[in-house]
């Protein structure tokens, strides 16, 4: 019974990797096709600003719709399909990508659920499980967010890190299902570790969009439109990307604060002291402080948004380090036997 479940779980992960890899390909194709159509157009970017600025009496860009910018951005030029102003071939690619993403997400959810049934406990006890659950939350966040705004431009950039995590999960972090050690046997695992994993998913979205913001910003200031970064013309403006990234961080930061508090409460139950400066605690603290610095930097007039975003990206670097390095190489109470 358990062996069957374990196999179903494994097959689900492997199938999800294949499906999501195809989805990634179609999202990339979508961006490429939009970009090629855009190149026929002369310099799409300045047009966009004109459209935005001309729409209302307010200052440039403040009312540019975030993410839902396609009617304004391509402004009724060229488009082979009048309804969306995007080439039909591009729309088709995005549609296939979306369907595949839904399928891949369902497969990852199935993998997590069967794993949970197999081990008969909360499926967050080792790095393999953190990885697949983290990938699941990232996918769910993307899918959920997509239902509220057009995020087809983001698909490729979310699926790439998700695939990297799933790939690492099945190669480096693969761990057979097993019971937990006594200190992990607590309902706090469902609270602390679940929220931590969700938070990492949201931080991932924030960091991906933040990196795109920095690219878009560079592209806008240098005025470059075509060439290898032509696909960026499909993305929202730098300003809109920056706001999107900020809103992801605004969600993630309180969640991380809660993760640390819940961890402290649990640490007191399990280890006798709510804060031990265990390496994992140190890095959770560092992450908290770095993201706090990001929020302050962003709120400070006179600090460039670009510099603030770099701080957030450093914070995400710490998040990755806290998972991939601290768990494995640092001696501490968060070291998990068998990863």
């Amino acid at each position: 019974m358990n062996d069957t479940l374990a196999q179903i779980s494994s097959y689900s992960v492997y199938s999800a990797i294949v499906v999501l890899f195809l989805a990634l390909g179609f999202y990339a194709l979508y961006l490429a096709r939009v970009a090629r159509a855009g190149e026929a157009e002369v310099e799409a970017a300045p047009e966009r600003e004109l459209v935005a600025a001309g729409g209302t009496t307010s200052s440039v860009g403040t009312d540019e719709p975030v993410g839902t910018d396609e009617p304004a951005s391509t402004g009724g030029h060229v488009g082979t399909d009048a309804a969306t102003q995007e080439p039909a071939r591009a729309r088709k690619a995005a549609g296939i990508a979306w369907t595949l993403t839904l399928l891949g997400t369902a497969l990852v959810v199935a993998a997590v659920v069967t794993r949970a049934v197999e081990v008969a406990r909360w499926p967050l006890g080792n790095m393999y499980e953190f990885a697949i659950v983290g990938a699941m939350f990232t996918l769910l966040a993307y899918v959920g967010w997509s239902s509220r705004r057009d995020l087809r431009w983001l698909g490729a950039f979310v699926l790439a890190p998700v695939l990297a995590v799933l790939g690492s999960a099945v190669t480096v972090w693969w761990t057979e299902g097993s019971a937990l050690m006594p200190s992990l046997r607590s309902y706090w695992i469902a609270i602390h570790v679940t929220v931590a994993t969700m938070t990492v998913a949201v931080f991932t979205l924030g960091a991906v969009i933040g990196a795109l913001y920095l690219l878009q910003d560079k592209r806008e200031t240098s005025g470059g439109g075509g060439g290898r970064t032509a696909f960026m013309s499909r993305l929202p403006s730098a300003r809109a990307l920056e706001r999107l990234s900020y809103s992801a961080h605004v969600v993630a930061f309180p969640m991380w604060t809660f993760t640390v508090i819940a961890g402290a409460i649990w640490a007191r139950q399990a280890w006798g002291s709510y804060w031990n400066w265990d390496p994992k605690e140190v890095w959770s603290f560092v992450i908290w402080v770095v993201y706090a610095a990001y929020l302050h930097a962003r709120a400070t007039t006179g600090w460039k948004r670009q510099n603030a975003m770099w701080i957030a990206l450093i914070g995400f670097g710490c998040v990755i380090l806290n998972f991939a390095v601290v768990n494995v190489f640092f001696v501490g109470q968060h070291s998990y036997s068998g990863l």
């Binding site: 400066w277 390496p279 140190v282 890095w283 603290f285 560092v286 402080v289 770095v290 706090a292 610095a293 302050h296 930097a297 400070t300 600090w303 701080i311 710490c318 601290v326 640092f330 501490g332």
Partner: peptide, 19 residues
């Protein structure tokens, strides 16, 4: 604010050797 930001980042860096 500038000093506070600097101190925040310094605090993050200073905590690392402990791990």
């Amino acid at each position: 604010m500038r000093t506070a930001l600097f101190l925040l980042l310094l605090l993050a860096v200073a905590a690392i050797p402990g791990s």
